[in-house]
Computed example of a mutant assay.
Amino acid sequence: MSAAMDCQAGALARDGWCVFGRAVDLAVISGIEADLEERFAETPLCEGVFYGARTKRFGSLLTRSPAAERLVMHPLILEIVEQMLLPWCERIALNLTQAIEIHPGALPQLPHRDQDMWQGPKGSLEYLVNVMWPLTTFTFDNGGTRLWTGSHFDQDVPVLPEQESLVPTVQPGDALIFLGSTLHGGGGNASPAPRRGIVISYCLGWLKPFELQWLVYPPQIARHFSPELAAMVGYAQHRPNLGNVEGQCPSILLGDTVPDHLPAIDALRPDQAEAADLFLRSQLGEVG
């Protein structure tokens, strides 16, 4: 299975996107859609050209469907994501969970790169990886995601010809994975029915996420998550010492009681801990 994941990661690095077929059982997707049905019905249409006036969107899916954790923490998806992102961070973080419903008559979305929400240098690192989980089959006619193959290699080009885009047919249970540096956009829906999907994205652990996870999943919610999921939504430090609470890992907030007074505790990378230890020894005269 690791070899298969390496193949998927290779395709993702080469083309900027790939399809992981039959990533989960169809029953998992059907159950999640059933959990979200009422929310889809009650959510108003978006406002603004980018989100789309004929589109519905809502987030915080981990509180709306317990089975959403199956998608967020999918071990093989995480392996692919980590191959893409771990060269530039110690741990990845959840950037977004969002359900999307594109209604008939919706126009194509503005082509964009999701990484452009962060104003850092582009081309030398990847900021995030998106995973689109269809709830209904994605096709060209119903607004399936448009992708520009290889667009991640020349990120200074903001727009490419529409005829160069591809719309892969992706079915429920499949996962469409694409880089934050890949030019993409939702398609126009010329069919008579809405197109539904879920996008889950992961970013470098030291970035501020698109969906502010600590407010979406406050301690009283996150304490019911598994330790791994809680860490993914932000209840973990990114060494050195980033994202702490009173100098400690924010997971302390998930306990039954939180002490009023806490000692700050180093959270360093191994190389930094070694350098700090060497410096201390030099100050104590233990090294010459």
Rank of each mutant, 00 (worst) to 15 (best):
M5V: 08
V19A: 00
G21M: 06
V28A: 08
E33R: 09
A34C: 08
E42T: 14
T43L: 04
C46R: 13
G48E: 04
G52Q: 08
T55P: 11
L61I: 05
L61S: 02
L62W: 01
A68C: 11
L76Y: 04
E82H: 15
W88Q: 02
E90L: 14
A93M: 15
N95K: 05
L96A: 14
I102K: 05
A106N: 11
A106H: 11
L110Q: 13
H112W: 10
R113P: 03
T136L: 03
F140M: 13
G143C: 03
G143N: 10
G144W: 04
G144I: 08
T145C: 12
T149C: 00
D156E: 15
L160H: 05
L160T: 04
E162Q: 01
E164W: 04
V170I: 05
L183Y: 00
G188A: 13
P194Y: 11
R196Y: 03
S201Y: 03
P209D: 02
F210T: 12
Y217T: 12
P219F: 11
P227W: 04
E228G: 07
L229I: 09
H238D: 14
N241T: 08
E246Y: 14
E246Q: 10
G255S: 09
L268N: 08
E274F: 12
L278G: 01
R281T: 03
S282V: 10
S282G: 00
G285M: 01
